[in-house]
């Protein structure tokens, strides 16, 4: 029984892959300009699966993913009744990455640039203030309750006011992104500093460290894992905020891309944009995971 399940988990993802490829080449009832971009994506996914085939979770992910793509492809292309405007065809969605490559790449870079600026500002302020507030108990007791009230406010809500207050739309966007990352960073830093083992502090005190050394060489490195945890949680949200903020008064960026084409009911491009956002967020999260491994070797 166990053996059978194991064998099945090897067969299923590959079976769905083969069916998907067959389905792509079967005559479609709707017009398809270029099926090869989608085909390449599917083959790339299969290669990735074969590389990691030993891992059970990889096989399971493959099964779910190929089944989803198979159903999507089959349902949207094999029936004449499909409303391709409302239910975009996968071949067309992935073809957008080629036909609109210029706009998509420009959008990615425009978004990443704003994200980077907001990120940098939020990180410096969040960690710096977090260390201070976390360390001075009286300051913490005064500021932390207030932070708990302000931090859950969705930063996108500041956008219209920020636009009025700040010199440009882009500055306003950087501001809301910074808000999205600042609060989790700040709160995680404060909590990390507060949770430091008293024995470590005693050890530092008996070494006669200065206040500056204590802050920079003891409290900061101790808090890094907590800070990274906060950043990982907030970077996805910050991207969400950014794409939201790009829907207002923008001419580039992934959020703009999605918003712009949904105004024309071009949902094929809308879905491409959404997939692109998913890919970018994943890449960023992987990047943070990588940095965190480099930075925290001691756990």
């Amino acid at each position: 029984m166990k053996k059978l399940r194991e064998t099945l988990s090897y067969i299923l993802p590959n079976l769905f892959f083969v069916l998907l490829v067959i389905s792509i080449f079967l005559p479609a009832k709707v017009e398809i300009e270029n099926r090869y971009v989608f085909l390449i994506v599917v083959i790339a996914l299969e290669i990735n699966l074969l590389v990691k085939i030993k891992k059970q979770s990889s096989r399971d992910i493959g099964t779910v993913l190929f089944l989803f793509l198979l159903v999507w492809e089959f349902v949207t292309t094999k029936f004449e009744t499909n409303n391709t405007m409302l239910y975009p065809v996968p071949e067309r969605v992935f073809n957008v990455f080629v036909t609109d490559a210029h706009k998509v790449i420009e959008g990615i870079f425009s978004s990443l640039y704003l994200l980077f600026l907001g990120f940098l500002i939020a990180l410096i302020l969040g960690v710096g203030l977090g260390l201070l507030v976390g360390w001075f108990d009286r300051l913490k007791k005064a500021v932390y309750p207030i932070a708990q009230v302000i931090s859950p406010i969705p930063p996108i809500i500041y956008m219209p006011y920020a636009v009025a207050l700040l010199p440009s739309f882009d500055v306003a966007r950087v501001f809301v992104v910074a808000c999205a990352i600042f609060w989790p960073t700040f709160i995680n830093t404060v909590l990390s500093v507060g949770s430091i083992d008293k024995k470590l502090l005693d050890s530092a005190r008996t070494l006669n460290v200065s206040s500056w050394t204590l802050l920079v060489n003891i409290l900061l490195p101790y808090s890094v894992p907590g800070i990274i945890h906060g950043v990982t949680l907030s970077v996805g949200a910050s991207f969400m905020v950014l794409t939201g903020a790009e829907m207002l008064g923008s001419t580039s960026g992934l959020g703009w891309f999605v918003k712009y084409y949904s105004d024309f009911s071009d949902y094929t491009r809308v879905v491409s944009g959404i997939i692109m956002i998913g890919i970018v967020v994943t890449v960023i999260n992987k990047g943070i995971g990588w940095v965190s491994k480099k930075l925290v070797k001691w756990k």
Binding site: D197, P221, W298
Partner: peptide, 9 residues
């Protein structure tokens, strides 16, 4: 100290 006096990082 008895323990936890080294800085783990």
């Amino acid at each position: 100290f008895q323990h936890y006096s080294l800085f783990p990082w």
